[in-house]
């Protein structure tokens, strides 16, 4: 990494880049850096993958049925609970 300072600057906008909320000019600068810098490309790709895995795995979790049953009882809404 001969261009270390540049890499660090890039990393501070990496999050917005991934979210697609980076302005056009910074985005173009960043992409031209990525074309020439393998390390940063790996960081971007593995960061994207990290977020993707979390989203795919964890956002599917649900509350166990017995937890939901007790919640409805606690709230006096058990008559309205859809089984």
């Amino acid at each position: 990494m001969d261009n270390k300072q540049h890499c660090k600057e890039l990393l501070s906008s990496i999050s917005e880049y991934i979210d697609g909320s980076l302005n056009e000019q910074l985005c173009a600068e960043l992409e031209s850096h990525l074309n020439g810098c393998d390390n940063c490309r790996v960081v971007v790709n593995t960061l994207k993958k990290t977020i993707e895995i979390y989203h795919d795995q964890v956002s599917q979790d649900t509350a166990p049925q017995d937890v939901k049953d007790r919640l409805f009882v606690k709230l006096n809404l058990d008559d309205y609970m859809k089984k």
């Binding site: 919640l71 409805f72 709230l75 006096n76 809404l77 008559d79 309205y80 609970m81 859809k82």
Partner: peptide
Amino acid sequence: HSELARMV
């Protein structure tokens, strides 16, 4: 109650 149950 039925609307609250929907929210929950």
